[in-house]
């Protein structure tokens, strides 16, 4: 009786678990593993937009990109704005989480307002910022002008000057990541056992002392996870740059994902584009491993 036998097999734990997990592994292998390998292969060829194969060129794509000034700018920008945005996010989220976890009046409304940037699709809210930073009708400039903080006839061009444009992009990223990091930090705070707080009280630890010696160390592992997500999300995001500046003016706000897109899709040099994107991989891999190890070590001690 084949039917009967199949059931018996499924009853066995050794067989059931792999059968349940297999589809997920296959999907992930086909949609993430395979393209990743393909990406590495492409980066070693001179493939163009028309085909999936090309002549083998070794590390030429990597070396030619490394000496490309636009790539250099993109690489530097990606690192700088990822670090700055995440520093802002961590500071803001720690404070915000500490207060949002309390059961104060109006908590639902406050949480709703704070969550908005995370819930809204990033490409759409960035269009909102495009309008906020508009060259003629910027509400930021209007306010600054009313307060006489900037020259009425020569207001700052938030997206038209290199440094200001970088600051604008960083702001949008920090703004968008803050709610997510806050949520993760709230989770961290909520998971601190009640006994720990009680014990701290008995030992006379209150206020800042408690925060420094009890709450912060316990919050560290989950905060690390929040930062890990933040770094990966900012370093690899293309929507914000694409919509705000497209890497301009004169490639001064170029980021690696944007540059990979322009080289590989718009410029048609698939191989070079893949090489640009892959520059991120070792950096992200190292960051991920370090942070996970750190989170685990802190958790154990």
């Amino acid at each position: 009786m084949p039917r009967r036998r199949r059931r018996d097999l499924l009853e066995q734990r050794r067989f059931l678990a792999p059968a349940l997990i297999a589809p997920a592994v296959v999907f992930v292998g086909l949609l993430v593993g395979a393209p990743l390998i393909l990406s590495v292969y492409l980066s070693l060829t001179n493939a163009t937009a028309g085909s999936l194969t090309g002549g083998f060129v070794g590390f030429d794509n990597y070396t030619s990109q490394w000496s490309d000034p636009n790539f250099r700018t993109a690489f530097r920008n990606t690192i700088v704005f990822t670090l700055v945005a995440n520093a802002i996010v961590v500071l803001g989220a720690s404070v915000l989480a500490h207060f949002l976890i309390r059961e104060f009046r109006g908590r639902w409304l406050m949480r709703f307002l704070v969550l908005l940037p995370w819930a809204a699709p990033v490409a759409l809210s960035t269009i909102g910022f495009l309008w906020i930073f508009d060259s003629l009708f910027s509400v930021v400039n209007w306010t600054l002008k009313e307060l006489s903080l900037v020259d009425r006839f020569n207001p700052p061009q938030w997206l038209g000057e290199p440094n200001k444009a970088l600051a604008a992009i960083t702001t949008v990223h920090a703004w968008r990541l803050l709610p997510f990091a806050t949520v993760i930090m709230i989770a961290g705070l909520a998971s601190i056992p009640k006994e720990v707080n009680d014990a701290a009280k008995v030992d006379g630890a209150t206020g800042l002392k408690k925060l420094w010696f009890v709450t912060l160390p316990l919050q560290l592992p989950i905060a690390t996870i929040a930062v890990l997500f933040g770094i990966v999300f900012t370093a690899t995001d293309m929507a914000v740059v694409y919509i705000l500046t497209r890497g301009g003016p004169f490639n001064s706000t170029q980021m690696l994902p944007m540059w990979a897109f322009q080289t590989g899709i718009q410029g048609g040099s698939l191989g070079e584009g893949a090489a640009v994107a892959l520059f991120l991989l070792p950096v992200l891999a190292i960051v991920t491993v370090l942070m996970l190890l750190f989170a685990r070590r802190v958790e154990v001690t």
Binding site: V32, L38, I265, L280, L281
Partner: peptide, 20 residues
């Protein structure tokens, strides 16, 4: 492992996938 896969961003995959 799954958690790590979630961290592999579309940025790394869109070029080969666009060809596929």
């Amino acid at each position: 492992g799954l958690f790590l896969v979630y961290l592999v961003p579309p940025t790394l995959l869109f070029l080969p996938l666009s060809r596929v």
